[in-house]
């Protein structure tokens, strides 16, 4: 079904004219995912920014079938579509559940875990903008250490939940991470995932200019810095084994990533202990070691 993994697909299956903010990483990623998966796809989308800016009645942006139910059940709804296709002898069809980091790592994690465990032939895509953006930038389980949100005004004190590795530990056949600055890599991973039978998980870092406090034209640059500082490792796991890692030959200090974003302003205020930034550098160093970046 998937022809060429390395061709960039531009089919406009996720049409322009939607209501996302300028520079929205999620809108960019959703278009890449839709175009990579092609017309023969059903998108099951969780409540959240993506759903709100792309599906107001009567003018949705989707040119593929779109199914939205609730905030926390995209994975279960997609599982339902999948079993229906099996039972009705229809298909093959690409079934892609999509949600933000809140619906994926917090409120919808049970449905996600159940879908993985039961082995549905579904690709779950998480657009990670590291907080509840649709409701006005509140902290989620995926918000990183030190981040200022409206519910962590002093900066988050806890670590970001590692959903890709939690997904991999379910024993599912394919887990990958990607960023929206690398069209080719992201689409290759979507196509790779769709060529594999069973549950798949793709975790995409999707900057939110509004919530992260950066200019809309910096979305791509911020993604690159997330990789170059090793804050966000980009890798693929097949059957529990890491099969590819995007190497970072020249590693930059995390400050270069943090300083561009208003959400980390607290860390650089006069009088803030430098240990806070050091703790984040430690996370990046841990990624370097763990993934051999």
């Amino acid at each position: 079904m998937i022809e060429n993994l390395d061709t960039i697909e531009k089919k406009d299956l996720f049409a322009s004219g939607h209501r996302a903010c300028g520079g929205c990483g999620q809108a960019l990623a959703a278009r890449m995912v839709a175009d990579a998966s092609g017309e023969n796809t059903i998108a099951c989308v969780a409540t959240g920014c993506l759903e709100v800016f792309s599906s107001p009645y009567p003018d949705p942006s989707w040119r593929i079938p779109f199914l939205h139910s609730l905030f926390e059940n995209a994975a279960a709804v997609a599982a339902g579509v999948e079993v229906a296709y099996k039972a009705l002898n229809k298909g093959p069809v690409n079934i892609i559940a999509q949600g933000g980091d809140g619906s994926t790592s917090d409120i919808g994690f049970q449905c996600l875990s159940g879908m993985f465990e039961r082995g549905h032939n579904v690709l779950y895509v998480c657009y990670d903008n590291e907080a509840y953006m649709n409701t006005g930038v509140q902290r989620s389980g995926s918000t990183p250490l030190g981040t200022r949100t409206t519910t962590t005004p002093g900066g988050k004190k806890r670590l970001k939940k590692n959903i890709p590795l939690l997904a991999a530990d379910h024993g599912i056949p394919y887990v990958a991470t990607a960023t929206v600055d690398d069209y080719r890599d992201l689409q290759r991973k979507v196509k790779t995932a769709l060529s594999i039978e069973g549950p798949k998980y793709l975790h995409i870092l999707a900057p939110c200019p509004l919530g992260w406090g950066h200019a809309g034209d910096l979305t791509v640059q911020i993604c690159r810095l997330a990789k170059q500082t090793c804050i966000f490792p980009v890798f693929e796991i097949r059957e529990g084994k890491i099969i590819s890692v995007q190497k970072v030959p020249v590693k930059k200090p995390v400050e270069e990533y943090l300083k561009l974003q208003g959400r980390f302003r607290n860390l650089f205020k006069k009088g803030t202990p430098t240990t806070d930034v050091a703790a984040i550098q430690k996370i990046a160093d841990g990624n370097i070691e763990r993934f051999n970046l």
């Binding site: 099951c44 199914l67 139910s69 059940n73 709804v77 599982a79 339902g80 079993v83 229906a84 049970q110």
Partner: peptide
């Protein structure tokens, strides 16, 4: 894994024509 998922699965399946 829960009644919430049971209802969600039949929702998806029904929306797909089952």
């Amino acid at each position: 894994e829960s009644e919430f998922a049971a209802a969600s699965v039949v929702l998806g399946a029904s929306a797909a024509g089952a």
